[in-house]
Write a protein that binds this DNA or RNA. Structure first.
Lengths: 200, 200
DNA sequence: TGTTACCGAGCGATCGCTCGGTAGGTTCTA
DNA sequence: TAGAACCTACCGAGCGATCGCTCGGTAACA
C-alpha cells in the first residue's frame, strides 16, 4: 500500500441493503424476489417495505452508496497524493483496485445491474460513472501532456484502465491468491504500462 | 486490419435467438418475459416453445453460439498468424476486439448473464471462458519467456487484456466514433503496452 | 396516546409453460 | 391418382405458481 487508505473498511449499508446485495450478487436484480431479500434479512415482506418503498429503491440505495463512496474516495486519493502526476495516477488506481477487490460484490452488482435502474436513478448513476471515468481520463491526459505517459490514445487508455479495475470485481476472491495490497501493487504497475509510462 | 478476418460477419443465430438477444440486451434474462421474446420474434408464445424447450434453452443457445464462434475464431487467428509470438498476440487481440465490437450485444449478454445459466450449461460456459482466457495467458507467457514482453505478472496481464476487450462491448457503438478496424488498431497497441512489449 | 417496528394474510397481475387444437404441405397406400 | 395418414409450424386460451406490494393488525416503547 503506497498511499494511506482512503476507502472505509466497510460500506455504510443498512442490514436490508446488505441482505439484498447478497441476493442480487447470486441471482441478479430481476432474479431476486422480495421474499428472498426478506428471508436473507431475517424479516417478513412488510418488514422490508417498512424501510424501503419498493424493490427498486433498495437497488438505488446500493448504487448510490457504492458510487458515492467510490467517487469521494477517488477524489480524496488524488487530493492527498500531492502534485506529482504519477503519484496521483497511482493513488487513483490503488483506490480503484481496493474498491473493486474489497467490495467486489457491490461493485459487480452496481455495474451489471445498471440496466435495471429506472429513470432519474439511472441518469444519476450514469453521471456518477462518467465522473469517475473523467478522473481517470484527466490524469492520463495530464500525464501524456507532461510526458510522464506516452500513450497515443489517452481516452482509450483511460477506458482500458477502468475496464481492468472493474474486471477485478468479476474474478477476485480475497480468500485465495493475492492480498488486496499485493493485487493493487501489481495493478498499479499494469496500469502504468497500459498508459505507457516513460520509465526513468 | 493487420490480419485477414477470421470471424463471420454475422453470428449463426436463429430468428428467435436473435429476437431474444434484443430483449435480453435491454432488460436482462430475468427481466425479459417469454411474451416479449415472442412478440419481438413475430410469433405467439407456443410458437417459441415449438423451437425451444424453455426460456433457459434460448439463453444457452446464445451462449454456446457466441463462445463457440469466439473460440474457434481465436484459435484460427493464432494459427494463421504464423510463428512470431507478437504476430500471434496481435492477431488474437484483433479477433477479441472485433468480436466484442461487432457483436457487442451478444458479448455483453453472454458475459453479464453467466449467473443466469444453470447446471451443465453453466459448467460448459465457464469452461469455454477459461479456454479463451488460456489462449491469452499462453501467448503472454510465451512472449515473456522469449523476452518479447517484459510483464512481471503474465497471468494478471492476461486477465487485464481480456477485461479491456470485454469492456469494449459495454461502451462501443459502431455508429459513432472509431470504426472497428481503427478500434482494433488502437487496442492492439494498448494491449502490447499492457504486456510491456519490448519495443525494438 | 402516539410512534416505531414490525407481521399474517392475501390481492391483482403476471410469470413460464401447456393443452388441444388447425392449416398446409408431404408421403403412403389401394 | 384419389384419399387417408402423417408431418411441421404454428395459435388461442388458460393453468398453477409466483410476483411486487398492501391491508389491517399487534407488541414494545416514549
Amino acid at each position: 500500500m503506497k498511499f494511506p487508505r482512503v476507502l472505509p473498511h466497510e460500506l455504510p449499508l443498512s442490514p436490508i441493503s446488505r441482505a439484498a446485495l447478497r441476493c442480487f450478487a447470486v441471482n441478479g436484480y430481476h432474479g431476486t424476489t422480495i421474499r428472498q431479500i426478506a428471508s436473507a434479512a431475517g424479516l417478513s415482506v412488510p418488514g422490508i417495505y417498512h424501510y424501503f418503498g419498493s424493490k427498486q429503491d433498495i437497488l438505488v440505495d446500493l448504487c448510490e452508496v457504492a458510487m458515492g463512496e467510490l467517487i469521494s474516495a477517488s477524489e480524496r486519493a488524488i487530493d492527498e497524493a500531492g502534485v506529482n502526476v504519477l503519484d496521483r495516477f497511482d493513488a487513483l488506481v490503488e483506490c480503484l483496485v481496493q474498491f473493486h477487490a474489497d467490495f467486489a460484490d457491490v461493485a459487480f452488482v452496481t455495474f451489471s445491474e445498471i440496466r435495471s435502474l429506472k429513470d432519474e436513478a439511472l441518469v444519476r448513476h450514469l453521471a456518477a460513472r462518467r465522473r469517475e471515468q473523467e478522473l481517470i481520463t484527466a490524469l492520463v491526459e495530464e500525464g501524456v501532456e507532461t510526458s510522464v505517459f506516452q500513450a497515443p490514445d489517452p481516452r482509450h487508455v483511460a477506458r482500458a484502465i477502468s475496464s481492468i479495475c472493474i474486471g477485478i470485481s468479476q474474478w477476485y476472491r480475497s480468500d485465495q491468491g493475492l492480498s488486496v495490497d499485493e493485487l493493487s501493487e501489481v495493478h498499479v504497475r499494469i496500469c502504468r504500462d497500459t498508459a505507457r509510462w516513460a520509465r526513468t
